[in-house]
Amino acid sequence: MEKNQYKKHGDILLSVRHLNKKFCKDISHNMRYGIRDIWQAILPIKSDYATLREKEFWVLKDINFDLYEGEILGIVGANGSGKTSLMRIIGNIYTNDSGEVWTKEGVKTTAVFALRSGMQPLYTGRENIYLKGALFGMSKEKIDQRIQFIESFSELAEAIDQPLGNYSSGMAARLAYAIAIATDPNIFILDEALAVGDSVFKAKCFDHLKDWVQQPAKSVLFVSNNIRKILKVATRVLVIDKGRIVYDDSDVTAALNYYVMNCLKDLTPEEREIRFQKIQMYDY
């Protein structure tokens, strides 16, 4: 992995060491392996998770990095590189096959993969605040304390008692994002969560994130292939390629240039330069 020295902002909130995760390409093999793994765990029988079985492949291989407080860590990589799988392991949605994910004691993680997941169109915005907040693990008392912030941040106070089904997609995105950040996590995971919504609200969210991570024990994992967004908000970038971290740098521009050129590595030098100039024209 190519890695330059970067300034460490503060305490480590998250540490990932030798993390591995494999998936299976075939559903029948996957079901058989799942049943076998359950029995081996019950008996228990020692399993060799370091070896691929038929139809399996590594979605993540030997992932190592630390997340420091005060960082907005951009995670970039081509589609299928393993970005979302990594975030889902950190967010306790997936289990890992081997390796370790360590978080500092008392650290709370909120992960946003699909903003409107769990929200009901027939319920009002206010009712969805309580529903979505509960899904994030918030108590009714905590939601009561934060509901004024949610209404204010989402700028939806006048529509908060209307059915969510009457909201535009941008309005629903505003509400969902406001609920997520109202959980007041230490680590905030955003996986393409700001791909929808209007530009004015997106800008507000990015400004808020920059200020938010200045508080003690706060950091962001921001997953996106939108170069412009990463360039504007990230303080450091990890580039993932085929399940491995191949670049890690606090020089965000250098890391993004590496990511783009790595995506174009199969082209001739002349073709690569032409494509790179086009990408810079539209995405930077």
Rank of each mutant, 00 (worst) to 15 (best):
E2P: 00
N4M: 01
Y6H: 05
K8L: 02
H9S: 10
G10E: 05
G10V: 05
D11I: 01
L13N: 04
L14Q: 03
K22M: 01
I27C: 02
S28F: 12
N30A: 05
A41W: 06
A41I: 02
I42N: 02
S47M: 08
S47V: 08
T51A: 11
R53K: 13
E54V: 01
K55N: 07
F57S: 04
F57Y: 15
V59W: 01
L60F: 04
K61N: 13
I63N: 08
I72W: 05
G77I: 11
N79H: 09
S81Q: 10
G82P: 11
M87D: 01
I89L: 14
D97A: 09
S98K: 15
G99N: 09
K108C: 10
T109S: 08
V112G: 01
P121C: 10
Y123Q: 13
G125T: 02
R126W: 12
L131E: 01
F136S: 12
M138K: 08
S139C: 13
K140G: 05
E141A: 08
E141P: 00
Q145N: 14
Q148I: 11
Q148W: 00
F149G: 00
F153S: 02
A159K: 06
G165F: 09
N166W: 01
N166M: 12
Y167E: 06
L175N: 03
A176H: 07
A180C: 09
D184Q: 11
S199T: 15
F201V: 05
W212Q: 00
Q215V: 02
Q215D: 14
K218F: 06
S219G: 07
N225A: 13
V233E: 13
A234G: 10
T235A: 06
T235Q: 10
L238K: 07
V239G: 15
I240T: 12
I240G: 11
R244T: 14
V246F: 06
Y247K: 12
Y247I: 07
D248Y: 02
D251C: 12
V260T: 12
N262M: 14
C263N: 07
L264M: 13
L267Q: 15
T268C: 04
R272E: 09
